[in-house]
Design a protein around this nucleic acid. Structure first.
Lengths: 340, 340
DNA sequence: GTGAAAGCGCTAACAT
DNA sequence: ATGTTAGCGCTTTCAC
């Protein structure tokens, strides 16, 4: 049974008890292959007896390696990012790394602080989702420091990333809506300045709408990324030439839109069609299930982690656009005659 | 503009440049009040010029304090736990602490590994949600090590915790159902062995059902915490004396149940009533909104963190049962004549 | 196959 | 108000 060790033991104590030098104890944990079998066994026995485990702080300081990665995400309350975290966490653990997460609430100041805190902790690299890679001072800081990083969800010409092709995905969704007979589509998003992804999705949707000869795509930006405003929705739908389909730039927002529409007395998809983007697990449980674009979030996290670890090996892994998948749920119906 | 500092600077380099001793640079960052204003300013200037920040690994090793807490949760994909994380993270940051999270997937082995990893990182204390506090070997390890910890969501007679009163909350829900005329209620849960919370909720519901003279509460345990099985549901509802209301032990499961019921051709609440437990933000966006018990998850995280920090000060904060709130959504209707 | 010794970056007595 | 010094726990040449 383990002794109560209030005062933590060190490698030196174990060395003394096992009748070896501290260096040998160190080897027992890091390069066990270098030791004679019975030396190793004796050391392990003593260590176990005391419940001893090497202090990573000492180890990190001496070796200059913390084997810890940083992960910076807007919010874990969006299940999409939570999945990404779990993907990254699992991949990291499987490869001997730990991860420290920080959430930024989409605020650049919080983002900068989070990254700084992670750097202070001597993380060896970062995975992050930022508002806009092109304007991110955080990213410039990282480059200046020479600290490896990989973006997740963001796309960029100048920074390494793992994402889906947001433009193509939005385009696919517009094609689906068009195939269902919708010609007047509106995009609902959060603040564009805080999300280049929403901007890319908007651009992709508009371009495809033009290509298919649909009406101009209206854009309704909300103050929040995840909450729709009833008044704005009502105004949009009361106008002449109101859209028959609402394409929301994320699933949480889509759920909010559907809920608000119901408050306005409209039913989805009977009165109006709605779709989202993200493919959070929950979307499939909605009644009816949400029509959306599924992003492989777990994989985005895992692959971003893989890329980052490759960076740490001195490689320069390519940016990745993983496959998205259009999930046809029950919130998009065939367009009927003009609504009012 | 910051120089490119590939080779990280140390306090000694800054000291040399600023013409002071290393100790003074250390004080500039930790006890700035001890320095003469212009010494401080000079040091800060030099540090800024190089983008220097003290290495926390060195600091932790020397001071014996990492100012980092561990947080161990079943899964961040349940938004309830994500909110808890954000509550803890915010509280910790506001008090100068960082947090390392780990998710366990409800697996005891993963839980043990996660805790060990956190201990290796020399966290100063832990907040954790375990399957069953009474049988948790992890908790025994922590006690043996003398490492402070606070449970979140769990209730226990022997371990410090922050939660709601699960039994009372379940009892409230049963009262609501009874008031709506339901006399045959079934509880749907995940595996009970993996969640003492589900067990407490079941016990609370049963006790209240007896008190109100309702029929015996049936219990239908699913293989997963968050996914309902259609066959099991069908069997339950096809039986004579089928329940008119299904009380699910968490919101994710409730959403799954509602979705499966729809697959069986049943509509909620017209054909059958369903309610959940957790109060995840998303529950309010469901159509109709889910009837559930709201737990103050953000607060549970924050208060658990506060309690843990109090432990670190040598205090012994009391366990806390925070207030829950019954949210009457639209998934519970008045019971009609016996279903079939 | 194992030991001795130096030092990673920092802080905390203890001096002055 | 600031400097000197020792050492936190560990890894890593370099010996033997």
């Amino acid at each position: 049974m383990p002794h109560k060790n209030l005062q933590r033991l060190s490698i030196i104590d174990i060395a003394r008890d096992a009748g070896v030098s501290p260096a040998t104890v160190s080897r027992a944990f890091n390069r066990p292959d270098l030791l004679k079998a019975d030396t190793l066994q004796r050391i392990k026995a003593v260590a176990d007896e005391h419940g001893f485990r090497p202090n990573r702080v000492g180890s990190s300081l001496r070796s200059g390696s913390t084997r810890t990665l940083g992960l910076v995400l807007p919010t874990l309350r969006n299940p999409v990012f939570a999945e990404c975290f779990e993907g990254a966490e699992q991949y990291a653990h499987a490869h001997g790394y730990s991860v420290m997460v920080a959430s930024t609430s989409y605020a650049p100041a919080t983002e900068a602080a989070a990254v700084q805190s992670l750097i202070d902790h001597q993380v060896e690299g970062l995975i992050l989702t930022v508002g806009n890679p092109a304007r991110s001072s955080t990213l410039r800081t990282l480059t200046a420091q020479g600290l490896p990083y990989v973006l997740a969800y963001n796309e960029s010409a100048t920074h390494p990333f793992v994402s889906v092709d947001n433009g193509a995905a939005a385009s696919d969704m517009v094609s689906l809506l068009a195939a269902r007979g919708h010609r007047r589509i509106a995009i609902i998003s959060g603040p564009l300045t805080a999300s280049d992804r929403a901007r890319r999705r908007l651009a992709g949707a508009r371009s495809q709408a033009r290509k298919l000869g649909l009406d101009d795509v209206a854009h309704l930006p909300m103050a929040s990324h995840t909450e729709a405003d009833s008044e704005q929705l009502r105004a949009l739908l009361d106008a002449p030439q109101a859209p028959t389909a609402l394409f929301c730039s994320n699933d949480l927002l889509a759920a909010s839109v559907i809920s608000r529409l119901r408050g306005l007395g409209l039913s989805v998809p009977a009165d109006i069609s709605v779709c989202g983007f993200d493919g959070m697990t929950f979307a499939a449980l909605m009644v009816p299930p949400l029509t959306t674009i599924e992003q492989p979030s777990h994989d985005i996290g895992a692959r971003a982690c893989a890329s980052l670890l490759a960076c740490l090996q001195g490689e320069t892994p390519p940016s990745l656009r993983l496959a998205h998948r259009l999930i046809s749920g029950g919130t998009v119906a065939a367009a009927t005659s003009a609504a009012s």
